[in-house]
Design a protein around this nucleic acid. Sequence first.
DNA 1: ACTGTCGTAACTATAATCGTTACGACAGAT
DNA 2: ATCTGTCGTAACGATTATAGTTACGACAGT
Lengths: 147, 147
Amino acid sequence: MSANSRLTIAAHALAWIGLYQRQGHEVATSEQIATSANTNPVVIRRLLGELRRAGLVESRRGAGAGWSLARELESMTLLDVYEAVEPGPLFAMHRTTPHQECVVGHGIQPALQNIYENIEETLRHELARVTLEKVLGDVLAAPRRPL
Amino acid sequence: MSANSRLTIAAHALAWIGLYQRQGHEVATSEQIATSANTNPVVIRRLLGELRRAGLVESRRGAGAGWSLARELESMTLLDVYEAVEPGPLFAMHRTTPHQECVVGHGIQPALQNIYENIEETLRHELARVTLEKVLGDVLAAPRRPL
DNA sequence: ACTGTCGTAACTATAATCGTTACGACAGAT
DNA sequence: ATCTGTCGTAACGATTATAGTTACGACAGT
């Protein structure tokens, strides 16, 4: 699949900010998060920008600038993140219009559209069941390497 | 999303072959299917090749060559097709390993892996509920254009 | 004014998918 | 035995999405 890691990186960033704030800090910088995720700060800023538009995080500019959560991790789900960072539908239709004079070419798109919508709805439901609070909890529950 | 249309085209091809066989024909050619799907015959042959490896269709070579169903449409589900034509996981991990000295960087992958597996399992379950027989039925049920 | 960070544009790199051309392999028909 | 139509598959280019990188102005607190 066109496996993209946008959801993964976005969840990583949110968990990082959440934990950092619990440790008493006000804001997290894109550079700190990028170091943890092993990527470029601009990639983080771009993704967090989309999360900001969705109302999940806030940003502060100027000196002492950075990112903070706009809501509790409890109230955020993977569905919120998914909708914020994944634009298109899960499955695409034909890139070109099928042959409308053919019975199958004519009926295939409405048929699949309907089926795909139901499947996506189930996917959304599953994503909505996972809060970012749970993600952070699972992260912290991961076994630590032995010394 | 990296919306790809492989599942759509594969379902289109199977529905087309199924209907064609019900009309009394032995085999369907990649060119006929490509005309209906408005794409290139090689694209169809490539996809059907993957469906053949999955045991969903058979191909005949030589004169009078073409494709036929290996099983009834009743016994095929979108999950069979999905597994045949979609290689990777639904959501990808980081492209580079996150910073293991960071608590979040260390725990994020096992946490998400587990969560993603559950979600994919639900998706598979939904895909398995839709037979290709139902797809063809929905296709034929699509409203015809008025004359 | 100085500083650190955001916000964003611009460009390149990488990869997946798709479209296209080409050609050998195959098997039935003549 | 040759002819014919189609598969099987390699090779290449086009398109698109994502990611990485550089650069620089905007901003706000010190």
